[in-house]
Design a protein around this nucleic acid. Structure first.
Lengths: 253, 253
DNA sequence: TAGTGGTCTAGACCACCTT
DNA sequence: AGGTGGTCTAGACCACTAT
């Protein structure tokens, strides 16, 4: 197991402390952090970069830094975590695990451009918020890096959380394809919606160190889930008739 | 008009040259760029950062840099441009402009947390690819920064392109809410789909220098559009049964 | 005016890949 | 072994905001 670079350790540490509510009344300045962690300001800026990009910490020329939002868009890039999105809004979320096993799959291996007999850890779940199912979720991760996932209890825990803590794995690149399709009979039953109801379907392929390692499909009931992507310091446009509460309807025409 | 920082100028210049196909056989190293632009390597790395994040340029420890993909996910962050996504795949895209005017709107102003009488440039378009409509698009941008948009020909040009070149404006933060809903009668007619067809609806609010400046709604026909989000060097998982051609279907259950 | 973050420099060492 | 990118330092100056 490699040691993470210093900036990454600091970034992780800051995020953890943020989520513990340590900086509710003011975030330390770069110079203060530089002293506190005993690194140069450049390293601190590198550690802060992902937090600023994801709109977790704000600030700017002249203005001191401040905390915007601790509900994190898990990992890197335009990714998000359905779980964290839900619980951040105060709901109680849990999953019903339909499958959690070791498999091989010609289709998945092809989609990831891997050997056809590559073993995967495969997990399928129905995800519910306050008792109502809102998404169907299935994923395949190369078994060689995710074996601990087989023994994890995933009813209350995020897969990425387990990967991070138990396997020391965090994806560093990926693609996401989002489409909207009508619910098939089988999926409609699982999600307790009518057949033909609009679904949000997301296919994600993730990489670790330049190698494909995960394929994930998510099917969400269109009227129960809103996908939220934040970039930069968007504090000025958060919460004014946005995701919480209902979006402001503006009639077409 | 402020002058952009040096790293940004270099980043823009590199992107332009990339899109002109200048680096098809090999991208220069950081040291070479450092000499060529007469700046320190740090500044070059800053200029390259957005290109690497968006998966346009790849590389890594030891490996020289290379070009992955010139079809850019316009601007910053998890944003994308529908237009660029389409034309990158070789289709011919155009827009039918339904409205292009100066307006005020209580709803929009509220959603952006602005004065209720703020004037906006409002544009509504039907977007077609190879003659088939695939999306309905409407946006409001604060008039004081986007007035040239009123005179622009938007049938063949991207709004962001105009904002960039004519208004020297590029958003630096924002939120995007994506949902899936059935098509209403009016929208179904515009998109030439059946009423109730699943639609991908995206609401975006964008900021410039910490101030809200744009609200945009996009309604896309679910079976005609795939939203693609790339982050990092995802070259290992692009194109293997992905967005071009059809995605690999894997039956549920 | 003092303090913040934004930009930039000129070096250094290391891990990794290619040859 | 040589060259690449990844990390890190210790400075510097500037633009901006708060007071």
């Amino acid at each position: 197991m490699r040691t993470l670079p210093r900036w990454r350790q600091i970034s992780d540490d800051l995020l953890r402390r943020l989520q513990d509510g340590e900086f509710v009344d003011g975030f330390p300045g770069e110079l203060a952090l530089s002293e506190r962690y005993e690194v140069s300001r450049g390293t601190i800026r590198q550690a802060l970069a992902p937090l600023r990009e994801q709109g977790i910490v704000g600030g700017g020329r002249g203005r001191p830094s401040y905390v915007i939002n601790t509900s994190r868009t898990s990992g890197f890039g335009p990714m998000y975590s359905l779980r964290e999105a839900i619980t951040a809004r105060g709901g109680t979320e849990s999953s019903h695990v339909l499958a959690q096993r070791l498999v091989t799959s010609k289709e998945v291996a092809t989609a990831l451009d891997l050997d056809l007999d590559t073993p995967f850890v495969q997990v399928t779940r129905v995800r519910t918020a306050d008792g109502t199912p809102f998404a169907l979720d299935r994923l395949w991760i190369i078994a060689s890096i995710a074996r601990p996932l087989l023994e994890a209890d995933l009813t209350e825990t995020s897969v990425y959380g387990v990967l991070r803590s138990r396997c020391d794995v965090e994806f560093d690149a990926g693609v996401e394809y989002t489409r909207s399709v009508p619910a098939s009979a089988g999926i409609a039953a699982r999600l307790e919606v009518a057949e033909g109801t609009p679904l949000l379907t997301i296919r994600r392929k993730s990489c670790l160190a330049g190698r494909p390692v995960e394929l994930r499909d998510t099917c969400a009931a269109g009227d129960r889930v809103t996908l939220t992507h934040v970039f930069g310091d968007a504090s000025a446009v958060l919460g004014c008739g946005g995701s919480n509460g209902k979006p402001i309807e503006i009639p077409w025409d």
